[in-house]
Design a protein around this nucleic acid. Structure first.
Lengths: 366, 366
DNA sequence: TACATTTGGGCAACCGATTGCATACATTTA
DNA sequence: TAAATGTATGCAATCGGTTGCCCAAATGTA
């Protein structure tokens, strides 16, 4: 047998082919079925043969061809994840949560980034729906306004779970943060510290999370009898540069705001730096409150108050939901309550303002 | 024909099966081969049939099964990428570079993270080598000390390119930054600003990049007639916490260093914050120089001097190299020269120290 | 010894494509 | 009109596994 193995090895080097069950079968003089069954611990195969097969497989460095297995089985035990960017803290920790649950349940995770581009998102989904994954977890790119590529997944029987950036136009399971509440509470907190003239820097309104945050902001102000003026709100992209641009607008306005509630930490960063570069004191003159609790928030000076969305838990919930769907269940949508993280950029001014807000995390509890 | 299509649709809903070329063939009354060829624009198929097939395929929402295609073709046009973490700026921009080149060349990219764990890395490579990818680009986890899982890829004819974290024990193409030079120049710069007592916080020495940085540090000091004492160097993990721990050691030592050259920005962050928390002035008393130019470097106060490794270019080079290998070429290894980014954490003290170092980038040139 | 079971393993179809070769028909040429 | 091309399509093998069904040998039972 050692001899046959040797012969085989030589052939290997010539033909540069991978080892299949039939190669093992040939060496052992059995059929492919037997090898397949032996490797699966099928009871119909005797202990003796089973051991021989396993041993030979090991010696020949056999690895099952996942493509063949998946093709035959009809599923791949793989979950596709589509996010705008993988290097946003929010998304990378969501992915962490997804991987954790998925791996535990025996699934692989295939990560893709859309770069916020509709076309790339489309391509990715198209590629994933060619049998590569059993289901998809996604957070919609903001370049996306037509959702048919998402809805098409259903035609291919690929279950879909959206998290964070969801849309009612898509039929899918959803895991969302309570962005409305988060925003509402941010504004209420700012009001409680005596800030009244509260601006808002929003993201594009076709995106659920930014629309909800805007609504929360609006309703909170209304609830306290304040109606925002037209120039209090700016809608735009969620980049640092957009923040810089908004800061400049603010500086050119007739009066500084007391506070700015920003729908994204990256925008908040741009605003904060640009305001300070122009001599505006944060938080003394203007308080700034971001959203997403990016990792840089606590590193900048002043540290940036923000809203933690429990991104890892969101990822876990999304993975659980998708796997539930794959098992034929009908899991309910998940809504995760966010938590305010208070830092220096919203430090209260002057005399101790006594608050009565029990739902707020104080600095350090991060 | 509309009728046949309708019948088919009904069957679809019942059986919940995806559309194959044979379904199209059945509707049109032709063979599977014809459909396959028509979809590939094979010249042997008449214009008329070709159009019919394409039209029907579109109507039936046909998507080729990637598993079947790849199984048959023997390759997948997919590149596997394995990195320790996707949310490190360094790695995510390397991935950006990889994707850019790969997509342009018609390859998909499958991203995996090892979390610095040997076991997970092993699992990932094992899974990738089951026919899922044509080649692998990786940066070795620091939990890895045995490299057979990498070398095993060769047995499966899967070309491998390592970037950043490489190893001589692995037979693979390599794209590296010139870490030795980077470190050497950092230390030379620090010396040029009058700092002599320069500590070094290194990463585990079985990892190429950290070993090289240590060597560069050592040689630079030697070249200037300085021999580091035993407690000048600490070898350990590359987390923020490790930095905090080192800072505490420093604080308990007999004398503060003039500067600390840190092999990782995350460690440098920990050191910087902990030193400052204990009243040490940075850079007045101690200068700190990091490595990797993470995005938070410019955001903290004082901003952190660091070494930019051109991670995106590294990714591009790695992808080019891998695709070259896939095309049967034998690309040469790539060494990328890093660039020093000077920020406030190493601001020179007292009188203007006139430097004669032309290879240094000055603040703002980032 | 004869028959019924159990055990171990092979045959062949199948998953969804691709492709070399054969074939049927149409067209051109001698 | 028969033979030689050309054109359009189908058959069947193949990629590397999995699995229902069938059969031969071994074992059990009377």
């Amino acid at each position: 047998m050692g001899n046959r193995l040797h012969t085989f090895t030589l052939r290997m080097n010539e033909k540069k082919k991978k080892v299949s069950i039939y190669d093992i079968a040939a060496v052992l003089g059995v059929s492919g079925s037997t090898v397949s069954r032996a490797l699966q611990n099928h009871p119909a195969i005797s202990e003796k043969v089973r051991e021989q097969v396993r041993k030979t497989a090991r010696e020949m460095n056999y690895k099952p061809n996942a493509l063949a297995v998946n093709l035959k089985r009809g599923y791949s035990k793989t979950i596709g994840v589509v996010v705008p960017y993988i290097n946003r803290n929010f998304f990378s920790s969501a992915i962490e949560g997804i991987e954790e649950v998925a791996n535990r349940m025996g699934y692989d995770v295939l990560i893709c980034q859309s770069n916020e581009l509709y076309e790339k998102e489309q391509k990715i989904l198209h590629s994933l729906s060619q049998g590569k994954v059993d289901g998809v977890i996604a957070s919609i790119a903001y370049g996306t306004r037509d959702y048919s590529h998402y809805n098409n997944l259903a035609e291919d029987r690929i279950p879909l779970v959206l998290f964070d950036r969801v849309s009612d136009e898509v039929k899918a399971g959803m895991v969302r943060g309570n962005d409305y509440q988060g925003a509402y509470r941010v504004v209420r907190y700012l009001l409680s510290t005596g800030r009244k003239r509260i601006f808002h820097c929003a993201g594009f309104q076709h995106v659920s999370v930014w629309r909800d945050r805007y609504r929360g902001y609006w309703d909170a102000l209304q609830a306290y009898g304040i109606t925002p003026e037209a120039d209090w709100v700016r809608i735009g992209g969620v980049t640092r540069d957009a923040g810089v641009a908004f800061a400049r607008e603010i500086l050119q306005g007739k009066a500084l705001p007391d506070a700015v509630f920003v729908a994204s930490d990256f925008v908040a960063l741009g605003i904060l730096l640009e305001l300070m570069r122009n001599g505006v004191k944060v938080p003394e003159e203007v308080a700034i409150f971001g959203y997403a609790n990016e990792s840089f928030d606590e590193l900048i000076t002043p540290s940036l108050s923000s809203v933690d969305q429990f991104s890892k838990q969101m990822g876990q919930a999304a993975a659980r939901m998708l796997i539930g769907k794959l098992n034929g269940e009908h899991p309910e949508d998940v809504l995760i309550e966010p938590e305010l993280i208070l830092r220096d950029s919203t430090r209260a001014q002057g005399s101790d303002f006594s608050m009565n807000l029990t739902d707020i995390t104080h600095e350090g509890k991060l």
